[in-house]
Amino acid sequence: MKTQSFSHAQDLELALALADAADLITSARYQALDLVVTTKPDNTPVTDADRATEMAIREILAVKRPDDGLAGEEFGTNAEGKSRYWVIDPIDGTKNFMRGVPTWSTLIALIEDGEVVVGVASSPALSRRWYAAKGLGSFVIFAGGTPKKNSVSRVAAIEDASITYSDFVGWNEKRAAFTSLMDSCWRSRGMGDFWSHMLVAEGAVDIAVEPKLALWDVAAIDIIVREAGGRFTSVSGENGPHHGSGLSTNGKLHDKVVKLLNGN
């Protein structure tokens, strides 16, 4: 049987519908007094909302895109040998979600032949949703309003740049270079997680960097930043979300930041 093909616009429409389904679950469980929190084998926390959200997305994809693979944070990966697969982080920022900090989101991405072609970051507690598809641009919606096109900043000098990050964990041998980069920038703030990168896409900050990330942490971020005119690589400068870290910039600053972080 011939596999059905879909346009990027159709896949984006589905990704937005998946985000709608996710928001219903995460919003209902956010700040719930009976939220169930357990610890995974890697010693990171997971809530009943994480699991319920990913399962809901998996069930929809099983009907809407049965031939596609799927990589999810909570229930594993079924993407081997697949040219198309979805990447799901049901709640990026679980620790924030647990503590009632509103900086968390559901991240949904589609990868085709190794390249991210669709991405959605939905953050109902912030009343924001960012999304992008290859060749279709990058947008943000605030409080259900009219989509606004994302566009990165034009800042070209490190000393004029605003940088945001999560924390100092995971930098190891690059910690001194990271600290030096922050000291060189005009402004630094620890926004953290997905939000740092979305602010780069919006042009509100110029650099967002995290030293240790999984594929589901960065796949959606990758295309939202790139379609806004920015660049997304690993900290070492490797293109794409497959290299275990994340660096988003407005593009003009990217090579300079990579050099500074890697001791050049």
Rank of each mutant, 00 (worst) to 15 (best):
S234Y: 04
G72D: 05
V37Y: 00
A132G: 13
F6H: 13
G244S: 09
V235D: 13
D113K: 14
R84M: 03
N250Q: 12
G230C: 08
V46D: 02
D50Q: 09
I88T: 00
A79W: 01
E73A: 04
G144M: 08
G135K: 11
E74F: 03
E59L: 04
V140Y: 11
E159Y: 00
I141Q: 14
L14A: 09
P124F: 00
V36E: 11
S234Q: 00
T179R: 14
S105D: 10
H8C: 11
N264I: 07
G100P: 06
T94R: 06
A201T: 07
G192T: 12
V205D: 09
S138N: 06
L126S: 10
Y165N: 02
P41L: 12
D113T: 05
V117T: 13
V209N: 08
S188I: 01
K40H: 05
D206H: 13
H8A: 14
K212C: 06
A9E: 11
G100S: 05
D206P: 06
G237T: 01
G251M: 00
W86H: 12
V118S: 08
G137Q: 05
L18Q: 08
K148W: 05
R175Q: 13
F194N: 11
N43M: 11
T44A: 02
L18T: 05
A125R: 07
F75S: 09
W171V: 12
F6N: 05
E115L: 00
K149Q: 15
V63C: 11
N43P: 01
E227H: 09
P102T: 04
L136G: 06
P66Q: 02
F232P: 02
D92V: 01
S188G: 02
R58E: 12
V205A: 04
K252N: 15
K134C: 06
K259N: 13
E210T: 15
G244I: 03
Q31L: 10
L126N: 09
A143M: 12
T146M: 08
F168R: 15
R189Q: 11
E13G: 14
P147C: 14
L16W: 11
T47D: 00
N172G: 05
K148I: 09
L110P: 10
P241Q: 09
D42E: 13
E80S: 13
L261K: 07
T26R: 06
M182V: 05
D89N: 04
D23H: 12
L14K: 07
A19T: 01
T3N: 07
K174Q: 15
V87R: 06
P211V: 03
L215V: 13
A132T: 06
F6E: 06
V117A: 09
G144C: 05
G93M: 00
Y85A: 02
D167P: 07
E173G: 07
A15P: 05
A19L: 09
A79E: 08
A214S: 12
N239C: 01
